[in-house]
Amino acid sequence: MALNIVNYLLKPVFTYPLSRLLVNEVKIHKLSCVTHSISICSSIRWNKTTQDKELHSDNNILHGKEQIISKLNFECMEHAQPFYKLPTKTLLHVYKVTKHDEKQRYCKNRLYYLSEKLKCPASVLSKHIAQRTFIYNLSFDWLERSLNVLLEMGVTSEGLMRDLWVLKYNSNTIQERLQKVKDMGVVNIHPWMVRCSEDILNRYIEIMQETKSILGETKSTQIYLANRLNTTIEAVNEMCLKTPALKTIRVTKVKHFLDFLISEGFTVEDVANKPRILAASQKTIKQRIDKLRQLGVEDINLNILCRSKKHFNKFCESIESISKE
């Protein structure tokens, strides 16, 4: 009895024939492979369909842009190329304005109008106009009057091309601003003078007037520097080669800095031998002079003052350590 129970417990759970089981497993595997293949094919087909739709959409957009741009009276593809980057909605607006300008006999396209007025090739101007499509938002009368005032007041074509935003300002505002600048004796007129705040403009005028007063008949910072240092213009040019910052230094800084150094006991010969001092900050140099004097240094030379912050601090530390001994 016990043996029968043991045999029963050891009996396989199911007695399905092994051969049939293997066959079914093979069938299941094949079915799985087929299903997987169908899934992959479906995925590929779906992706291809999506890509085809996107490509078709892109082609439609491009075709739509081509149709619009072809009606904007561009003389060649080079002039039109930058406009392909614009949204279709923007191009439609440009088209509408262009057709209105053409109907009113203003111009065939504002690109060519500005190109003629600024004496700038359309191939160069095209990318600037495409990036600043507000040009097509202005009424032609507004654009024409603002542009004419700017040119009459002496703004250069190069300056205008770099700062087309100034055309958004009313011609009366432009006239008043630039006339004020000219009345103050400023010769070089720039578009930013229309757009900047009153404080900035007044500060600029103040600097220009001071510059004019300092330069007098010399007309050049380099000539002024040569006169102040009792040297030749050739020597100053050589200084500028060694210290490029001197090429663009304002004459107002040169004057104030030289006056300060002389008041501190330095001679023009000292500065001529170490012109790099003029490229430094006057505030920093004053702080260094004060610190050295606090440390008891009496013989201060420009070489020490021109040192880097790290080396200057090391020099001061060495003086402090000596004084403690």
Rank of each mutant, 00 (worst) to 15 (best):
L302D: 09
D58M: 11
N230P: 05
A2F: 14
H100Y: 10
P275N: 04
V166D: 00
Q81E: 11
K219E: 14
S57V: 03
E75Q: 11
S213W: 13
K108G: 04
E66M: 04
C316E: 03
I223M: 06
V194W: 06
L9A: 06
C240S: 10
K85L: 13
A272S: 15
K11F: 09
E158K: 09
T284H: 10
L3M: 11
N7K: 12
E78H: 07
A2C: 05
S308E: 12
R177C: 12
I38W: 13
Q287F: 10
D141V: 08
E25N: 14
K85E: 13
S323Q: 15
V181R: 09
L215E: 00
F312S: 05
S197W: 04
S157F: 13
D58K: 12
T267Y: 06
Y204F: 14
Y106W: 04
I200A: 01
V94T: 00
G154M: 01
R132Q: 15
Q67G: 08
T98M: 03
H79W: 02
S43T: 15
Q131G: 08
I233N: 10
F83D: 00
D52E: 15
R110Y: 08
S43R: 15
K247L: 07
G159M: 12
K99S: 06
E234G: 07
K48F: 01
M193Y: 06
L201C: 00
I189G: 02
R293H: 11
M193L: 09
A279L: 01
L178E: 02
S43Q: 15
Q287N: 15
G265I: 01
V254M: 13
T232A: 07
T248L: 03
R162M: 12
S157C: 09
A279F: 00
F74D: 00
E317K: 13
L111N: 01
A130Q: 13
N313S: 14
A130E: 11
K309N: 10
V194M: 07
N227I: 07
K119D: 05
S32W: 05
C316F: 02
N301I: 03
F266Q: 03
Y95C: 06
P244F: 05
E217R: 00
S220C: 14
K71H: 10
P12V: 02
T133F: 06
D58N: 13
T243E: 15
W165S: 10
M1A: 01
S43W: 11
L225Q: 05
L178I: 12
I285Q: 09
K65M: 03
L21D: 08
D101Y: 04
K242D: 10
S70L: 02
M1F: 02
I28D: 03
I300N: 08
V187R: 02
T252N: 15
D101W: 01
M193P: 05
L111G: 02
L9F: 07
T218W: 07
P121G: 06
M1W: 01
S308P: 05
K180G: 05
R20L: 09
N202F: 09
T15W: 01
N73Q: 06
S115H: 13
T211Q: 03
K253H: 12
L225W: 11
L305N: 06
